[in-house]
Structure formats: structure tokens, C-alpha cells
Amino acid sequence: MAAEVHNPNFLLTTLDKGISWTRTRSMWPATFGLACCAIEMMATGAAHHDLARFGMEVFRASPRQADLMVVAGRLSQKMAPVLRQVYDQMAEPKWVISMGACASTGGMFNNYALVQGVDEIVPVDVYVPGCPPGPQSLMHGILTLQDKIMAGEIRRSTGLL
């Protein structure tokens, strides 16, 4: 990331990389626990798996203070407008992880009640497979998202900034 010059107290990098790095290291998820996956999401944040290692243990109840929405669980037709509203309330830049089979595709419930994948409602950055995904899977999804942010530009083509 940084090139060292003669004085070791200086770091040189591009603005893109610097901003992306700060974004990845303090990414705060909004609590959007819906079903079984929410329990695994809580377990990921708790002591044994310790999500704090990646700078993201602060689950925010207020979407205004969150960067990342982990859609954890099955999304019913009745809940879909609420999901979209919470997403709209989050400040840019924002990201979405679709956690579990139900959130990604509707899972085993191909019926009248469920939205068949949250990507019909909000843009999804990372899909985490599993039913429910274990804490390791969720962490892998989060690290994948961090890599994606680091590799991308700071201006997202879809967002305002």
C-alpha cells in the first residue's frame, strides 16, 4: 500500500487506497436480523468468533449510522418494503451482504410468502451461501467485501458518492 521514502515517518499512497482502507476497517453493520441467520450473525459478533477483529462488531440499530446491511434470513413480502426503507435511510457509501440461501434465492421456500432473493429489492454486493451460513462463512463474506472495496474505486457508479 505505501511506498517508503527517505524519511521513514512519511507514507505515500493514493487517495483511493487511503479512503478505501479506512472504509473497510471501520465498517458498521446495521442490524437486520430476520430469522435463523440472525442467530448465526449474533454468534459471529459474540465472544467465540469475535467479529471485532475486523473492526465491525458495532451493530448499529439506527441505519443512519451504518455502512453495511447484512440481510440475515428469509424476507417475506410483508417485510420487503421495510427492508427497502432501511436501506434508503443508510448513508452512502453503503453495501449489502445477502446472508444465507433464503436471502439470496428464497432457499427452500419457493412459495407465495417469500421474496425470492433480496436482490429484487436492494443491490447486493456479496452473497454468502449456507442454511444458515456458519460464522466462518459470514466472516469470509465480510472479508470478500473488504477485498472488493479495496479493489474498487471510492466513487461508486450506482450511488451518489
Binding site: A35, C36, I39, R74, S76, M108, N111, Y112, A113, L114
Partner: peptide, 30 residues
């Protein structure tokens, strides 16, 4: 209530008795 309505009772009608366990196990996920 109803924000997590998953239609599981309907889904159960489309699964054999052997498969039904996969459905009911997700009702009370704790």
C-alpha cells in the same frame, strides 16, 4: 405479526414425510 411469514404450513404440503423435517426445523430456529 406476519413480518416473517414464510408459508411453511403450505410448503409442508409439497414435501414428503421424510423431507418434512427440513421444513419444520426452520420454524422455531432456536
Amino acid at each position: 405479526i406476519g413480518y416473517l411469514h414464510t408459508g411453511m404450513e403450505k410448503t409442508a404440503e409439497n414435501l414428503t414425510y421424510m423431507q418434512g423435517g427440513t421444513n419444520v426445523t426452520r420454524m422455531d430456529y432456536l
